[in-house]
């Protein structure tokens, strides 16, 4: 069990937590947790993986903005080509990405549906009481594309960046906010600790659940109120354990001389390389192009 391959990097924690997996009475919940593959780190070596997390964060934000600037087919083509290029460079298999998208299909249908049926305008077809309008089709289509691009775009970031790398990037990017008394370092530290403890707490949830099921607890049947009540035997021990862990962790951190962000050095400081500069340039060109195509030319 311990001899996992070398590639086991930090993000493997997600896949790595052995939540009791598979069948059994508590299987459903776990499977649900496992289904959410959207944006799980994908371990491979690519330009995008090696890129500074700050670049990826900024690019993602720019990309999202661009999706809201463009408002015509040509603009979406540009956005699509850009996304496709980035995905290609990231070496994350497209299949893997699409599998991750499955979990949002439902959301997509609802969002598109609303636009499709509820947009006023020139009626094309009528089902029962619902009217489909030309404007509706256009809006629904754009909405769907926008949503898919948005999610794929941001998942490229999480697919290619380990969470602690991401928190580092965020800490550094938001660094200037420190002057406004925003506890940037603390927030980043909290995020990375949360990431570290999620698998542990998931495993613990599974254990407590099983222990209570062994005492005849029933987490599945009954109405909503009964179900909510049945969670008490799970949540109380879980919270007590989480508090104990938090307490222990705080002590362990203090014992290792942790005293906030001041005077701290970094083992893995973020340093911009040449490729990061180039990436910023590309993003800028892309943005200009989007604005030009989306707003001016057409």
């Amino acid at each position: 069990m311990e001899e996992q391959s070398e590639e086991a990097d930090s993000l493997a924690i997600w896949a790595g937590c052995r939540v009791g997996a598979g069948s059994g009475p508590v299987g459903n919940e776990e499977n649900m947790l496992r289904e959410i593959t959207l944006g799980q780190y994908y371990q491979t070596d690519s330009v995008i993986h090696r890129m500074d997390p700050r670049v990826k964060l900024v690019t993602t934000v720019c990309y999202i903005i661009s999706l809201f600037i463009v408002d015509n087919i040509a603009g979406y083509v540009i956005a699509g080509v850009f996304l496709a290029l980035v995905i290609r460079l990231s070496r994350v298999p497209v299949k893997y990405m699409i599998r991750g998208m499955k979990s949002i299909v439902f959301l997509l249908i609802i969002a598109a549906g609303f636009n499709l049926f509820l947009t006023p305008g020139e009626t094309i077809a009528t089902f029962w009481k619902l009217k489909i309008t030309r404007e509706g089709i256009r809006l629904a289509l754009f909405m769907a594309i926008r949503l898919v691009f948005l999610l794929m775009g941001s998942s490229v970031m999480t697919l290619t960046t380990t969470p602690n790398n991401l928190t580092d990037g965020m800490e550094k990017l938001l660094g200037p906010l420190k002057h406004l008394k925003v506890p940037v370092h603390e927030i980043a530290m909290m995020m990375s600790i949360a990431l570290r403890f999620i698998p542990i707490l998931l495993e613990e949830t599974d254990k407590i659940m099983k222990a209570q099921i062994a005492r005849g607890a029933d987490f599945e049947s009954g109405n909503l109120i009964k179900k909510a009540k049945s969670l008490v035997p799970l949540l109380v021990p879980l919270f007590i354990s989480a508090f104990r862990r938090a307490n222990d962790l705080a002590m362990a951190m203090e014992a290792r001389c942790y005293r906030g962000g001041e005077h701290r050095t970094k083992m893995k400081p973020l340093i911009y390389k040449k490729r990061d500069g180039i990436a910023y340039g590309v993003v800028l060109i892309y943005l200009v192009l989007c604005v030009a195509v989306g707003k001016i030319l057409l």
Binding site: T162, I193, L195, R196, R245, A252, A255
Partner: peptide
């Protein structure tokens, strides 16, 4: 100092 519970004193993800 090294404490009892191995899970509650490791801070890093790697």
């Amino acid at each position: 100092m090294v404490f009892q519970n191995p899970d509650n004193q490791i801070i890093g993800q790697v």
